[in-house]
């Protein structure tokens, strides 16, 4: 079997170590993320999710342990050159990514990443135009200032700026925060397309359990700096009480299925999406009539 794409080995991280203000943010993290997988990392605010993201991209270095991304390893002693190689293949869409826009034009801003990673201006602009199309930005907007655009469009520009780097790993930190339902749906579908069509390995950090249930093939649950469970969505969402104990919201479908079970329905496997729930309801209603 091929090696997993990303592997955390005994990773720990402490903010301001050796000072009276030291805070242990992560401890004993062991996690494997297979190539072409879609992993959701969920957990309460302050559970260590954002620290994991920063470690993965070498924005923070682990206090102990190591993270392997393909053949590159991040540890407490990693050099800038090593980190640069890792960053060139990882794209991160941070929470409210429109805050990173700074260039005079949309096109220049999107081309910024590729240029930093060694692409010529011409190549970078070509990549930028391609990324604009991918995120559904009108080509007419290329020469506009990103600051004249609507909030939703600015979000797309920022996402395009990440995609233009052609990352093989895409990390998404609450990518739909603040968007309206249509924006949320379109954004999540965009990432799903990249995952399916271009085999991008996706890591989604989210509070939206519906998204984790619908898109992820494995879910890592964080609580208090520890990784408490890694499993398939159906397993994670089978027990509403366990979710509540770990400060997670129960997806609406799980909630509904649970209430229906009290009234005589049985679900096995537990439905993750509205469509699955509807199919199982139909089957049970019909089997009773026969």
């Amino acid at each position: 079997m091929a090696l997993p794409k990303i592997e955390f080995k005994q990773v720990a991280f402490t903010y301001q170590p050796n000072t009276p203000f030291a805070v242990k943010a992560l401890d004993h993290i062991n996690l494997e993320i297979p190539e072409n997988s879609y992993t959701a990392i969920v957990g309460h605010t302050g559970s260590g999710k954002s620290t994991i993201i920063q470690l993965l991209d070498g924005l923070l270095l682990p206090t102990s342990g190591s993270i392997r991304v393909d053949e590159n390893v991040i540890s407490a002693t990693s050099s800038n050159a090593q980190l640069g190689r890792i960053r060139s293949q990882i794209g991160i869409v941070f929470q409210f990514p429109e805050a990173q826009l700074f260039e005079e034009t949309v096109l220049k801003d999107i081309a910024f990443g590729p240029q930093n990673f060694g692409k010529s201006e011409e190549e970078a602009f070509a990549l930028a135009r391609e990324a604009m199309q991918l995120v559904g930005l009108d080509a007419d907007l290329a020469e506009r200032s990103p600051f004249e655009l609507s909030g939703g469009q600015m979000r797309r520009v920022a996402i395009a700026g990440v995609l233009a780097m052609k990352p093989s790993i895409l990390i998404l930190d609450e990518p739909t925060a603040g968007l309206d339902p249509r924006g949320q749906r379109e954004t999540m579908q965009l990432f799903e397309r990249l995952h399916v069509d271009q085999h991008v390995t996706v890591i989604l950090v989210t509070h939206q359990m519906e998204d984790a249930a619908q898109y992820a093939d494995q879910i890592a649950v964080m609580n208090g700096g520890q990784l408490v469970k890694v499993a398939e969505p159906a397993q994670i969402f089978a027990n509403p009480q366990w979710l509540k104990d770990n400060h997670l919201t129960v997806p609406k479908t799980t909630q509904m299925a649970h209430e229906l079970e009290r009234g005589g329905f049985t679900f096995n496997p537990y439905p993750l999406t509205l469509e699955q729930l509807a199919v199982q309801i139909k089957r049970q209603l019909e089997s009773r009539t026969q």
């Binding site: 991209d57 640069g84 991160i92 941070f94 805050a99 910024f112 930093n116 700026g161």
Partner: peptide
């Protein structure tokens, strides 16, 4: 700063001019 480093900006390396220029993507936002 994190977002721009993830986009390949290297702070604190290179010539003085390069270092000053790398601040623009931080200061404007």
């Amino acid at each position: 700063m994190n977002a721009q480093r993830a986009r390949g900006v290297n702070f604190g390396t290179g010539s003085l001019i390069k270092r000053v220029r790398s601040l623009i993507p931080i200061l404007i936002p």
